[in-house]
Simulated scan of single mutants.
Amino acid sequence: MTALASVADFSTVAATADAPLLFGSLQIDPQRRLVWQSGQMVALTPMEFEILLLLARWPGQVFSARQIYEAVAADSYDASWTGISSMVYKLRRKLGVHIIETVRGHGYRFTPK
């Protein structure tokens, strides 16, 4: 891993920070597990929400698919780390392609505009 200690550190931050996150027209409410874009609620699956929340809490930080999986889905029976790209694709369709950038060969990062 790079300069980041471990994926467990991300889970700890995710579990303790309940303040809404605001990025322009995008609002993420971790406590209520809701997302709005331009005032409209966006329906996300629980896994999509967790991925978005992880990436949004660390804007600009690149996460590999495996790191994302270990942070948000390791206990889930309906996901594998190879399915993360499919969930990122679905998030882009719901929120816009600019919201999550693919860093070829490394992973994904949240890039709000």
Rank of each mutant, 00 (worst) to 15 (best):
V35D: 02
L34R: 04
L55Y: 04
A8C: 09
I28T: 03
L26G: 05
W81I: 07
Y89P: 00
D29M: 12
L34T: 04
Q61G: 00
V103N: 00
H98D: 14
R33G: 08
F49A: 03
A65W: 03
V72H: 04
Y77S: 07
V35H: 03
S76W: 09
T45F: 01
Q27K: 15
L91T: 09
V7H: 05
T45L: 05
V72R: 07
S11R: 00
R66G: 11
A15G: 11
H106L: 13
T12F: 07
W81P: 08
H106F: 15
R33E: 10
S80H: 11
W36V: 08
A73G: 15
A19Q: 00
P46C: 12
R93W: 13
L4P: 11
V13F: 02
F63P: 01
V103K: 07
F10N: 01
T12C: 02
G96E: 01
A3H: 08
S6F: 14
Y77R: 08
S76Q: 05
Q37T: 09
L26Q: 07
V13Q: 10
S85F: 06
D29H: 14
L26T: 12
A79Q: 10
Q37V: 02
I100N: 01
L53T: 01
A19M: 14
S80R: 10
M47H: 06
T2M: 12
L52S: 00
R92V: 09
H106A: 12
Q27V: 15
Y108N: 07
S76N: 11
A65V: 06
A3T: 12
T12I: 14
